[in-house]
């Protein structure tokens, strides 16, 4: 009896029809494809994308040149020079991140005691020349200015 059932099953391609039924059902379902760039997938508030250097609300840069981020960076992507400013505070004169070396581990953000270096949610960027991959302090501060609002929102959400 089992043999006959097996024979009928294989004669009428039953198992293939079973599979085709599933693909057939998907025909009438709404596609799950995301039409990037118009539509985007959700982005976590913890996302680790392009770096930025933040400023205090009064416009003073946060980074105090403690070099913790440089020390903790596993890819040795950060290099910093510091100097004392005329008002006797220490600030960086050079702050560079090589984005080709960076592995986006997020340790620099974790290490920074004054929340200066952060990894933003920006993930769509490109370089046109090879040396553009090394972000200097001005670039980073500019991104920080641009991104400050989102960053504050992300911080709020992370606290929840």
């Amino acid at each position: 009896m089992n043999k006959i059932i097996k024979f009928i099953k294989s004669l009428f391609f039953l198992e293939i029809l079973k599979g085709l039924k599933i693909t057939g059902q998907k025909l009438s379902k709404e596609p799950i494809t995301i039409q990037y760039p118009e539509e985007k997938t959700p982005l976590s508030s913890r996302f680790r994308g392009l770096h930025a250097l933040r400023k205090y609300p009064n416009g003073e840069e946060r980074c105090i040149g403690c070099k913790l981020c440089e020390a903790v960076c596993p890819a040795l992507a950060i290099s910093i020079d510091t100097e004392e400013r005329s008002d006797k505070t220490r600030r960086t004169t050079k702050y560079e991140i090589d984005l080709f070396k960076c592995i986006y581990c997020g340790f620099c953000e974790e290490a920074c005691p004054v929340d200066a270096i952060v990894e933003t949610g920006i993930f769509e960027y490109h370089f046109e020349r090879r040396k553009d991959s090394v972000m200097n302090k001005l670039d980073l501060l500019k991104i920080g200015d641009m991104y400050e609002k989102e960053e504050l929102k992300d911080r709020e959400r992370n606290k929840l």
Binding site: E38, E39, K40, P42, S44, S45, R46, R157, L160
Partner: peptide, 17 residues
């Protein structure tokens, strides 16, 4: 390194949907 988040990121309104 971090605790589980209490909110999930969401899809945003866009011009297609």
């Amino acid at each position: 390194s971090k605790d589980l988040p209490n909110v999930m990121p969401k899809y945003m309104l866009n011009k297609n949907q």
